[in-house]
Write a protein that binds this DNA or RNA. Sequence first.
DNA 1: AATGAATGAGTATTCATTCAT
DNA 2: TATGAATGAATACTCATTCAT
Lengths: 200, 200, 200, 200
Amino acid sequence: MDDDTGPVTTVPRPVRRYDPQRAERILEATLDVIAEHGVANTTHRLVAAAADVPLGSMTYHFRSLADLRAQAFRRHAERMAATYEAHFRGVRSAGDLVEAVTDLVHGDAGADDRDWAIAYELYLAALRDPALREVTESWMRRSRSVLERFVDPTTSRALDALVEGLVMHKILSTRPVSRAQTREIVARALRPTAPRETSA
Amino acid sequence: MDDDTGPVTTVPRPVRRYDPQRAERILEATLDVIAEHGVANTTHRLVAAAADVPLGSMTYHFRSLADLRAQAFRRHAERMAATYEAHFRGVRSAGDLVEAVTDLVHGDAGADDRDWAIAYELYLAALRDPALREVTESWMRRSRSVLERFVDPTTSRALDALVEGLVMHKILSTRPVSRAQTREIVARALRPTAPRETSA
Amino acid sequence: MDDDTGPVTTVPRPVRRYDPQRAERILEATLDVIAEHGVANTTHRLVAAAADVPLGSMTYHFRSLADLRAQAFRRHAERMAATYEAHFRGVRSAGDLVEAVTDLVHGDAGADDRDWAIAYELYLAALRDPALREVTESWMRRSRSVLERFVDPTTSRALDALVEGLVMHKILSTRPVSRAQTREIVARALRPTAPRETSA
Amino acid sequence: MDDDTGPVTTVPRPVRRYDPQRAERILEATLDVIAEHGVANTTHRLVAAAADVPLGSMTYHFRSLADLRAQAFRRHAERMAATYEAHFRGVRSAGDLVEAVTDLVHGDAGADDRDWAIAYELYLAALRDPALREVTESWMRRSRSVLERFVDPTTSRALDALVEGLVMHKILSTRPVSRAQTREIVARALRPTAPRETSA
DNA sequence: AATGAATGAGTATTCATTCAT
DNA sequence: TATGAATGAATACTCATTCAT
């Protein structure tokens, strides 16, 4: 049953008995793994390796893989929302707003492709896991309310969807996307609603 | 409580030796399974059960699970594109266009929530599988070129992103989304670019 | 859906540093767990939870799980024997004896189904663990010698086996067992050996 | 990730692709393992090794470990009952009956200590698993009805319990048990009920 | 051509036990 | 002295894939 005739020590991982923040490190590693391998391939083993913790550590700190995923996603959404809010804090004029939204799409607002990829993983996971719905709902509520500080609800919904779609296409596209064009699209979405022929 | 033991198949499925469309049926079943369980949980076994074919049949008809997935996604994208094109065939006026795009978002254009869910599964899968990139690229190229029959490239990119984002939010949202508002958003995106400063 | 995550204990149990009877409480909890979940599912964690002591406390007080089990079983056997002896202390007549044995079978002698279930767990465990054999032997010796105060060794062995078998059947049976019938069976086992052929 | 620098072949188990009766062999091996290690230590691995089949074979043939256990127990109970019935088939006189029951207790009736140990494992398992209750009930019904061909129901219940208890004590006892004494006990249990003082 | 049987690699999870604090 | 944190070994189970029939 035991064929291992080699030397006793295989990989004498440095004993690291005391390690506060380990749970946090595992969560960060989970996001890394999700970003790199997708939620479908996010296993305890992969995360443990990424966080450099023993496998047994995983379910010690997190009841289950589903739990780990949920907590990691919650953390990510929380951070995305905070970044989002911070990013719009300095917006004063309509021009600022256009620029801020354009930044968002082009990864110049504190959230890069990796962050958005994680977000999309979250969306898809939420489609089937009701526990995650609450995370996506909260995230969308927050991003929407940031925008509503500047524009009406309809425009806000439009902008929000626009960002979502532009980012997704940008991430999926193999060709670079023109920042100028993005700015133009955002600007158009923000044009004040023309007083429809009312004057006529 | 559960007497149904032993190897996988208990019910001795009627032998169906001659079955020319089997491969097609498997592909359709694959899409069903992806829609219902997500790409991550799409297994040979699940698909075989859904298609009512023996397990051994799976790798007989498809080299591997990855291959099966790719073919199924290709089929789906192909169908989505065809539907998309057909849907815009009758568009004559700007009003028609607004209505057509709104239909698209609200599932009244031949593609329902299930279809879009599969599309999002494809997008995410494509993020990591280069073989699928070609499928998404082709699909996006086609949808874009349909729109470009009516509007300039920038507006087309905007519209495309808008649809993507609106649908995703609609699918994820627990509350119903107003069709009127969607129409309004689409209409705004289609407003002709104001010849700036002309009015002055 | 389940927010109770993180390491095992969420509720910060009040520190109970001084707790002299802790070992005893753990033993009692062990018996509870054995009765409810069976010896096979008796884990440190389960017992710790049942006794409301920290996990680390388990191996602090008991060398190992096997040790804990053995001590718990010893305690139980001891108590069963004492109960047994007490129960027969008041027996004066043959009629008393029949009644006492019947009580034993029907759980009216200080030992209920739970106690017997634990006893059977012990028997089976003893079948494979020599350390437990001494416990069962002692218990059987004592029960036998109680009976021998009233009847000859052969009858005592018969009675003892009878009780064992009747109780086991009673515990396993889904239908209630008639006390009258039990009494009849016991009474027959106690009939004085007919001076054979004397009647002829 | 792969530290195994040793030679490629570890243990080139002879490929045995085709193997009908494998399921049966696994069931028999399961009974062996239960008898030797107890139900608590009956693992897929142990059984697979005992049956000389690969681990993956276990859940291919049996939905779960619980299922495997249940089927093995069912098989055992079935066989025990058949043996029991066969053993009493030749009984003609009261003397035959005494001898037959005595044989039963002393392992001279086709069921040895191992068989009885398995039976006790079954009893205990049935205490907690309702699915097994049906197996024990059927087994007890059959043994009871065999005895009822010769004696009244009360005596039958007594005999049955007696056998159960005597065997259990015999198995647990470290000292040999006298066959003569067993025979005496059985004989007493079979004495016709004295016409209670009716004649007086 | 078609498939049921088979299997090895991998998965999440549990848990007795150790030990730094 | 007591314990929360930690971990490696083991567990049941899943599944893509292979292949004899």
